[in-house]
Structures are given as structure tokens and as C-alpha cells.
Write a protein that binds this DNA or RNA. Sequence first.
DNA 1: GTCTATAATCCGATAGAC
DNA 2: GTCTATCGGATTATAGAC
Lengths: 178, 178
Amino acid sequence: MVEAAVQVFHQQGVEKTTLADIARAADVPLGNVYYYFKTKDQLVEAAVEAHCDQLTRLTARLEQLPDPAARLKTLIAGWVEERETAARFGCPFGTLATELDKRDDGLDLAAAQVMRALIDWVEGQFTELGRPDAHALAIELVAAYQGMSVLTNTLRDPGLMAAQGERLQAWVDGLARP
Amino acid sequence: MVEAAVQVFHQQGVEKTTLADIARAADVPLGNVYYYFKTKDQLVEAAVEAHCDQLTRLTARLEQLPDPAARLKTLIAGWVEERETAARFGCPFGTLATELDKRDDGLDLAAAQVMRALIDWVEGQFTELGRPDAHALAIELVAAYQGMSVLTNTLRDPGLMAAQGERLQAWVDGLARP
DNA sequence: GTCTATAATCCGATAGAC
DNA sequence: GTCTATCGGATTATAGAC
């Protein structure tokens, strides 16, 4: 059910999505939603936590690669793979975070934590590569991803993300072998 | 009234904003809104056009600078100046475009046009600088702005935009004097 | 726990007085 | 043109049968 919520929130946006939409997507009756989540806000919170868990699983998988540069390039490759979805609905987490920043609930703070977790992980990779400016590079990489997601989405052009992804991978290569 | 709509849409998001909100912000009674705009969609459309007009005025002002590199750096400086607003509500146009991409109205196409107009103008500056890769550079610059807007907003950190702005200005300098 | 029916509220849109 | 009052529909949330 949380999985359905994450997907529908991504496709329609939190504000536009009704609990009936989620109930239909999860194939359960409406009343059932309220048995597990007392309010819509709690469902949104669960969705944010789901994104957090997914990030944890993703980084754990990437950690198995021996080379930090390879990890970053695989991360970028994963973004590019989702370019069709990004062209239609934007970055699953970025668009959610953007929307939460315009809501009154305190969930924007939770979103900030997840975003920071991604940045921190990327920063760790750059640090392993011996870069003293690891933090700034991490901001640059994540911002580049969020930015190309916005443009890919607005212009409805998955090719844009493919091109920018290649550029970023070359950029990581250049930083790894100076 | 359109001005009030643009501001409230930016601060609260289109979906969350009620026509009563806009009426209050513009200090007119609710019924009055419907006299000038038959539907909420028409008001959103007017807001997009307002963003388009503002972009036209901005680029016209920048054109008065003799040097393309100076124009781009002034553009970036303008973004950085608005960093406090960006930290609170994100890029005024980027967040709107992101939201329109999740709506059924056809206004996402209008938003795409405005975004493309910005990219085209930036591309023109890089072309004047003699860069054969002007288009890719324009995408890179606008994406960087949108990305740092998302991060500045999500992390509520205007300093992030200031730091990235400086980086982008140095980047433009480097491209102008190779 | 699962599901239906419905209450309570909010919002887009309209009617019509001035 | 300006403003008030209100309708109709949608949506969050609840009550209560099974």
C-alpha cells in the first residue's frame, strides 16, 4: 500500500492525489486506508520513509563495488536508466521534496534528511578518491541530477538526461584520474 | 491580480492554492476573480505568461551589456540575489513547471516553451562566445540553476546557492577565456 | 481486520443584487 | 464592473456492519 502511495504521489503529486486514488492503486477499499494511516499526512510520511529505505538499499548495493568512481558512475547510470520515467514525472524524490516544501506539515525536514543522506554518501565517495573538496563536488553532482531531472521533465526529453549522464560520468572519470 | 497569483502559486503551490487565497492576496472579493478568469486553469495560464514576460524583460535588460560572458554572470548574480526566496520556496518558475507536469491541463507545454526560451537565450550567449558546444553548455547552466534551486529549497540553505553561483560564474569565466 | 455508507468540510464555480 | 451568497461536487475522515 505504501508502495502504491509512492508511485501515485510521484505520478500525480501529493496535493492532487486523493486517498481514493491510492486505495484504487493498492486495490483496497477506501476505508482500509484509514485503518493503517489515520491521516493523509501519515501516508506521506510513510512515502518519505520508503524513499529513505530505497536510498539505503541502493547505496548498500553500490558499496559492493570496489572503486568509488565506479560506484558514482553506476549511481549515475541508474538515474539515466530511469530517464523515461523522469521525462514523464520528474525525479521521484526531488519532485516530492519540492512539493513537501510548500506544505504545512513538518515533512520537509524529513525530506531534507534523505537528500542530505544522498549528498553525504556521494561526498564519502569523493573523499575516498582523495578529493579535499568532496563536499562541494557532492553538492555539484546531486544538484546536476536534480537539475537535469527538472529539465528532462519540463521539456519531456529523456535524451537530455542521457546526454547529461554521459557528461557527468566523464566528469567523475576526470576527477578520479587527475 | 495576476501578480498576486504568481506569488501565491510560488509560495503555496498551484494545487494547494485556492481561488480564495488569491482573492485575499489581491485584496479583492472572490467573485471578482471569476469575472476576469472563468476558471482556475486560466489563472494558471496567466501566471505562466507572466513568467514568460518577466523572462523577456530580463533578457532585454541583459542584452544591454556588451559582453556575453558579463550577461551570463549577471544572470547568475540575479539568481543568487534571490537565494533567500529560493531557500523558502524554490525557483519561482522551476517549481511551477514541475507542478504543471503533474496536471491534466495542457499548460506543461507552455511551461516547456518558457524554459526553452531561457535555454535558447543562454545558448545564444555561448554562441557569441564562439563555443561550438553552445547548446550543451546552455543545458548545463540552466540545469545547474534548477538543481541548486531544488537543493537550496530542500535543505533550506541559501548559502548553497551563493556557493554554487560563484562556481558557475568562475565556470563561465573559464569558458570565455580558454 | 475488511469493507460500505455516510458525515463534515472545503473548494471551484455560478447567480444575481447592487 | 463589484461584491455577496450559495450551489454542487469532490475529498478527508468516521461510524459501524460484517
